[in-house]
């Protein structure tokens, strides 16, 4: 499944960490290029439901007096929200990573990481990053085309500080996204077919990350409750930071929670990996 894992990785005792993983990164980019048409279709087809959602909201606002806000969103702000969700999602979403990790475990490719001075999590993180680089560049074509038609709604960050904080929160969102996918894929150590778990996790993520709608149009109690879960920090929070909707104490609490969830997800990932190895039988390895 993954030609990547079969390539020998030149590791000399003197090779420092950076060189080693930079090599994985560049290899990942070369291998992911195979998927470029796949990615293009994915990004282009993904715009169909996005357009549908925007039409749906326009129909809802059309029945109300001009300038009406739903939650705290005018139509223009609502459209901006979905456009930014699309951009953040293109940058951070896992594409094939979880399936590949599951396959690595199933066909025994994981064995070589037990023998080589290469950390599996760091290795997969590099591949995730290279995958994101390719996906984002390919998705840029259809997404830019779409954004061009909606350009009046594509606003810059509300405040200068947003140029720094928004990328930072997107970066952490990417890390969290990867760690969640990685951990779910590690369930392959125990179960035969991990795809059900991937889809169940994704269903929760779809709703609670703010992919489907901005979380602050929910009843206040539910919205506040969701903010304690890791999911809002995948999409809703970075987009809110960019749009300047999350400010002051809420902003710093959000960053603290995002960082905390990245840390917790990392510890869980490590724990599940070490428990998984005890179960591992290296089939075909």
């Amino acid at each position: 499944m993954t030609p990547v894992t079969n390539d020998p990785i030149p590791v000399t005792p003197s090779a420092d960490l950076w060189n080693k993983y930079a090599h994985v990164l560049s290899m990942g980019i070369q291998n992911t290029l195979v998927y470029r048409t796949n990615f293009l279709f994915r990004a282009a087809f993904g715009l169909v439901p996005l357009a549908a959602t925007l039409f749906l909201w326009e129909a809802i606002y059309a029945d109300k007096p001009a300038g009406t806000a739903i939650g705290a969103y005018t139509l223009a702000q609502m459209v901006s929200y979905y456009l930014l969700v699309t951009v953040v999602d293109a940058i951070t979403a896992v594409a094939e990573d979880d399936w590949q990790i599951a396959a690595d475990i199933k066909d025994g490719a994981v064995s070589q990481f037990l023998l080589k001075p290469l950390d599996f999590l760091a290795y997969r993180l590099c591949l995730y990053l290279s995958g994101r680089v390719i996906y984002t560049s390919v998705a840029l074509i259809p997404v830019a085309f779409f954004l061009f038609f909606q350009r009046e709604y594509l606003v810059g960050p509300a405040e200068p500080l947003g140029w720094v904080l928004a990328p930072l929160s997107v970066l952490m969102a990417g890390l969290l996204q990867f760690l969640i996918a990685y951990t779910v894929a590690l369930l392959s150590f125990w179960v035969l077919d991990v795809s059900t778990f991937i889809f169940i996790q994704f269903a929760f993520e779809f709703l609670a990350s703010g992919h489907l709608f901005p979380l602050d149009i929910l009843p206040d109690g539910l919205h506040r409750l969701l903010l304690w879960s890791p999911y809002p920090y995948l999409l809703y929070f970075p987009v809110g930071v960019y749009l300047g909707r999350i400010q002051g104490a809420e902003l710093w609490r959000g960053f603290a929670l995002q960082l905390a969830w990245v840390g917790v997800a990392f510890l869980i990932a490590r724990f599940v990996w070490s428990r998984g190895l005890r179960k591992y039988t290296a089939v075909g390895g």
């Binding site: 998927y35 549908a52 039409f55 749906l56």
Partner: peptide, 20 residues
Amino acid sequence: GIVWGYYNLFNIARLPAEAF
């Protein structure tokens, strides 16, 4: 990717046509 794309087409079937 093509087959996966069909799932995206699926999604719009559950929306009222008049909204478009």
